[in-house]
Amino acid sequence: MPVEIPKDKWNGQVRVVTLGATADQGGTRTSTVTVGGETTMPFMHFEGEIPHRPVIALEIKDRRPDDWSSLLLDLWSDKADDPAVWAKAAEEAGADLIQLSLSLTNADGNPTTPEAAVDAVKKVLAATGLPLLVFGPGQADVDNELLVAVAEATKGERLVLGICEDKNYRTIVATAMANDHLVIARCPMDVNLSKQLNILISDMGLPLDRVLMDPTTGALGYGIEYGFSVMERLRMAALQGDAMTQLPMIVTPGFEAWKTKESKVGVDVPESWGDWEQRAINWETITAVALLESGADILVLRHPESLKRVRAAIEDLMTAPETV
């Protein structure tokens, strides 16, 4: 009995966004990464185009972090003391991109200066040819101060500046516009807020093909279902033709998963949680896979083993089935 395959007809497409710029394009990257362009829901190859595979970034910091799990710190060992070395190691671990997260303070506890931030970014740019995402420490005034300095010092690189939020986006968007960079628009797990921030950024004049959106996802066990559904809704809206949701989605399962107790803590936890290291990797991997299935274009991870597993899943899912 021949079954008629039900195909969803979408008339929208996710924007194609290219991260990083090579020498020809005004930057210094040896390669660029392009995401987006989908005309169907995740991996539905039989009814639309998925021209660019989801990519994986590894997150590094400008100095050895104080608050990361010892599992990660032991793994990266002394590489974490130098962002350039760390970036190189991340590239070797198979990352498509590097995310450099700036710290609020230096090792002595003094505030990170714009000069130090620029220095760290330049070191990483010199160490690797991969496109780079630079995140501020997450406090509005500090983010603005550091990211403006970084943006100006790296004009033309098409860095991704993170992150713009509804309370603090104007400065970062302005500097991204002036210096040929991209931005991330982040909203707390709400379709409307995401869309509103994209509109506000677009109203400032930044072309939307230089904006990525981060709907904020939560980790497995800590609200991932909201992120999962918000992403599905955003992607459906994009495919239905809503221009303000047609941005590639970036998610940070590494950050989300590694702040959970399940990943961070190895002692005094229930026996039913099992082996710490395996659990932590599984936590990050499952968080990432669930978000991949709901439409993530860029996944930022922290552990190379998770990267390997998620990479394998992407390879498999990007294969179009021959028959159904």
């Binding site: 709400d190 379709v191 409307n192 807020l193 869309k195 509103q196 509109i199 809503d242």
Partner: peptide, 14 residues
Amino acid sequence: FDAFMSALFLPHTD
């Protein structure tokens, strides 16, 4: 709540 958030914009998110 969803519709409310959507309307909490000028004139509307959509």
